[in-house]
Amino acid sequence: MSKHEIALEVNGRPVSATVDPNMSLLELLRTEAGGLEVKLGCGEGVCGTCTVLLDGEPVNSCLTFAVQVDGRAVTTVRGLAAEGELHPLQEAFLTHAGSQCGFCTPGMLLTAKWYLDRHPRADREELRSALSGNFCRCTGYTKILDAIEAYRDARQEVSVVD
């Protein structure tokens, strides 16, 4: 296997590495980029736990090879807010107990944030559909959707005041 030199941006920070072609983006993030907040779930693209934003769009980091993202920008859940702070969506998850064991939470947060940025007035049904590829085995989803809806409503109020 020939190794490849790659350079990308992770949460705004430059990362470069020498990788084998069969190293996943997920592994690159967890090892070379110190991104332990990115979790491995099913490894088959089904569960949504490993979701990251690639140039702003949600992708399975388990099904993307690191070598494919040379020159691209990756956002993990840690990129949602400044170090030591929480994003309002994360605050909403806390308020509404949208996180129990927390394993699915990074994927839930990134998918919900991405979707609401594009569909600010999405209703619960649309949110359910957008999140249908993110599995949670604790909450039963109700509290996750409550949290996301609360964040959506709070965001709209802020923009009305603006």
């Binding site: 693209g45 949504g48 949600p58 992708v59 399975n60 993307t64 998918t111 979707y115």
Partner: peptide, 12 residues
């Protein structure tokens, strides 16, 4: 296409 996989699969 809305039946295909999930939002991540549809983006790649």
């Amino acid at each position: 296409v809305t039946h295909i996989g999930n939002v991540r699969v549809r983006h790649r």
